[in-house]
Design a protein around this nucleic acid. Structure first.
Length: 201
DNA sequence: TACCCGATTTACT
DNA sequence: GTAAATCGGGTAT
């Protein structure tokens, strides 16, 4: 079950370093929540596949801001994809949430994902989990993790990351759907999870 | 202002 | 296995 707020401090480093830390954490949106079982890391100028590779633009500016914010973008004009910003101005980056295991609000998820045939279909992909958790462009810039001291921005955020149960074992592989930097093993998943997108790790 | 293309999902052959 | 759906940022006119 969802526990304490996820600490922003755990994300203050390169995306490829901190990405696995989000595995097992809960992504909470109102009454709905899911346990993160698969993520991908995207960094800056050293990562050709990243939106941030070419420097800041209106669309990706969040990746250059402080860790803990939600970066939501639309892909192929159809689906939303949710990322958690990592690092800082000198280390831009974000972690793409690729799959969640549905935990709370299953009924609402089925409602928003009428095409799903089984529970495993609800959140087994970046676009799928956004639909299941009702995340959209409106949530871009939400503060998803808690920073030291009072953090009212986090407290009133509709999207929150909370601590959960860490995976027993983590598998890695090349990132999905990219054409550059395909050699990097920056996809991380809970070994053997049936809630992961395909191909499974 | 035009053109290109993508960190995907789903339906159909 | 292959293709369509559909939008807006980025780069070039």
């Amino acid at each position: 079950m969802a526990g304490d707020p996820f600490s922003t401090d755990l994300l203050q480093d390169r995306a490829s370093i901190v990405a696995p830390r989000l595995l097992g954490a809960y992504l909470v949106v109102g009454e709905r929540s899911g346990r993160i079982v698969e993520v991908e890391a995207y960094e800056g100028s050293n990562d050709g596949a990243s939106h941030a590779a070419g420097g800041p633009t209106p669309r990706n500016e969040l990746m250059f801001s402080d860790a803990g914010y939600l970066y939501v973008y639309k892909i192929y004009g159809i689906h939303w994809c949710a990322n958690i910003v990592t690092g800082d101005h000198s280390k831009p980056g974000a972690v793409l949430i690729r799959a969640v295991e549905p935990v709370d609000g299953l009924e609402a998820m089925w409602n928003d994902r009428p095409k799903a045939k089984q529970v495993e279909d609800l959140g087994s992909g970046p676009g799928k989990l956004c639909a299941a958790l009702a995340i959209s462009g409106d949530d871009n810039g939400a503060k998803a993790t808690r920073s030291p001291g009072p953090d009212p921005e986090f407290d009133r955020s509709r999207v929150q990351v909370r601590t959960g149960s860490k995976p027993e074992r983590i598998s890695t592989g090349p990132r999905i759907g990219i054409s550059k930097a395909i050699d990097l093993q920056w996809r991380f998943g809970e070994s053997g999870s049936t809630f992961m997108s395909r191909p499974r790790l």
